[in-house]
Design a protein around this nucleic acid. Structure first.
Length: 419
RNA sequence: GUGGAUGUAGCUCAGUAGGUAGAGCGCUUGGUUGUGGCCCAAGUGGUCGUGGGUUCAAGUCCCAUCAUUCACCCCA
């Protein structure tokens, strides 16, 4: 008999690790609120064709990594492999543009991709991100990059770097790709197999190849995409950089940064964790001016990013940025027997209503065992409740840090444990 | 999908030349009658991933399989 376990590439976030996620989530809310972004939540599954149209039918994500299935009505559904398409779908479906001409949205949730798991990559994983929809201007690009960086700054993360690039408009990119093909065609034989395969298709991907021979060739001979942008593209990118400078954000202009998703235009950016393994992208994003109209929505410019939580947790663990789990209990109630438990219940109920964190011992253990347990649970105060205490209404509250006891009446408990 | 590494108690691991399993931590209980953190003691806990094979005998050798993990690919 095989032990039941979570399926490949999925993980439990265990009770003793959850505080890490809660810390991150609370900072996210804080940061997004400070940029006046609003949260949107969309379903975890959508029509399959939303992704094949939005992400690109020939992209790896769509062609081989999606969890797709037919429901009982025969509809083709897919567990979302990314969130931008879903948010855009929601934007179009509910005519957000009628509410306001600019939307600053953020999201957080699980995504699903059937890839081979490894460090920093799982089949169900969590991302948060933002989409700024409506503005064609560089200030929107800069703001979305700014938000992304703020999260790491607020969390105290140090080992990361921001890479930015502009891949121009579709027209400029087409021209550039031809130039690239032209300059590299004599060296095509020196490239690795996969790169040769991509030579005639999406040649931009050659920049992503990890093969050192390919990298050398690209570094030496490939022209920079930045030299092949239109004047408008160049001006846009220049303004983005000026705004980042003004915000005091350090960045690396990296002309080799070509994001994998098909929908990007102009600005692309990526934040790399410098202490992570092979999967080092903490955050990736860029501008996508054509996606909304491609999905039959109104012509609407937009820019956004997505960032992975698991990788962030790894990066923060590496820098030891998580405090000990501070989930202490305010009052540990140790009843001598069931009658004592019953007698103290009204008081406990009242205190819990007021928001105190109270643990009542549920195992009928010895006082010694209860004290040990209270210690383990980081209890601030302990009250041993016996017949005597109940009858007199007087009890001893033990302060676990100071190791001393105070005599109090039932009604004074609240005052003491509030401190 | 392709490669490499690994699979022994809840966790981290040891297991010597093949002879039917150990440590530390954890957990439980005790060290007198109602009080923790240190210390001490006892106890709990594993069909050695699974299935075959070789052998008198396998955790230890061989094969298969599954799982985990790292890397390729791709990406957050």
């Amino acid at each position: 008999m095989q032990k039941i376990r979570s399926i490949k590439g999925t993980h439990d976030i265990l009770p003793w690790d959850i505080h890490k996620w809660q810390k991150i989530e609370s900072v996210l809310r804080e940061v997004f609120a400070s940029y006046a972004c609003k949260e949107v939540r969309t379903p975890v599954f959508e029509s399959t064709n939303l992704f094949s149209r939005g992400v690109g039918e020939f992209s790896d994500i769509v062609s081989k990594e999606m969890y797709s299935f037919k429901d009982k009505g025969g509809d083709n559904l897919t567990l979302r492999p990314e969130l931008t398409a879903s948010v855009v779908r929601s934007y179009i479906q509910h005519n957000y543009q009628q509410e306001s001409s600019l939307h600053k949205l953020w999201y957080f949730g699980p995504l699903f991709r059937q890839e081979r798991p490894q460090a920093g990559r799982q089949r169900q994983f969590y991302q948060y991100g933002i989409e700024l929809i409506g503005s064609p201007h560089p200030e929107a690009d800069a703001e979305s990059i700014d938000v992304a960086c703020s999260v790491y700054r607020k969390l105290g993360l140090e080992n990361w770097e921001l890479h930015i690039n502009s891949i121009g408009s579709i027209e400029a990119r087409k021209i550039y790709m031809n130039v690239l093909r032209d300059t590299l065609k004599d060296r095509k034989d020196e490239l690795c197999e996969t790169c040769q395969g991509r030579f005639d298709g999406n040649i931009l991907r050659l920049f992503d190849c990890k093969n050192s021979a390919c990298q050398k060739i690209m570094k030496k001979h490939a022209p920079s995409i930045l030299d092949h942008l239109s004047n408008e593209d160049k001006e846009h990118f220049k303004q983005v950089r000026k705004l980042l400078d003004a915000a005091g954000i350090k960045y690396i202009v990296n002309p080799a940064l070509v994001r994998g998703l098909d929908y990007y235009t102009r600005t692309t950016f990526e934040i790399k964790g410098t202490a992570l393994g092979a999967q080092d992208a903490l955050c990736g994003g860029g501008r996508y001016d054509n996606l909304i109209s491609d999905l039959d929505g109104p012509e609407t410019p937009a820019v956004g990013f997505a960032a992975g939580i698991e990788r962030l947790v790894m990066a923060m663990d590496a820098e030891q940025l998580f405090d000990e789990d501070q989930n202490f209990v305010d009052l540990y109630v140790a009843p001598m027997d069931i009658a004592c438990l019953e007698g103290i219940t009204p008081k406990v109920h009242e205190l819990r209503d007021k928001g105190f964190r109270i643990h009542i011992e549920l195992l009928r253990r010895s006082v010694k065992a209860m004290m040990r347990d209270a210690n383990r649970q980081n209890a601030r105060w302990v009250a041993v409740i016996g017949e005597q205490e109940l009858q007199s209404g007087q009890l001893k509250l033990k302060n676990m840090q100071e190791n001393d006891q105070v005599d109090v009446s039932l009604n004074e408990i609240e005052k003491i444990i509030s401190k």
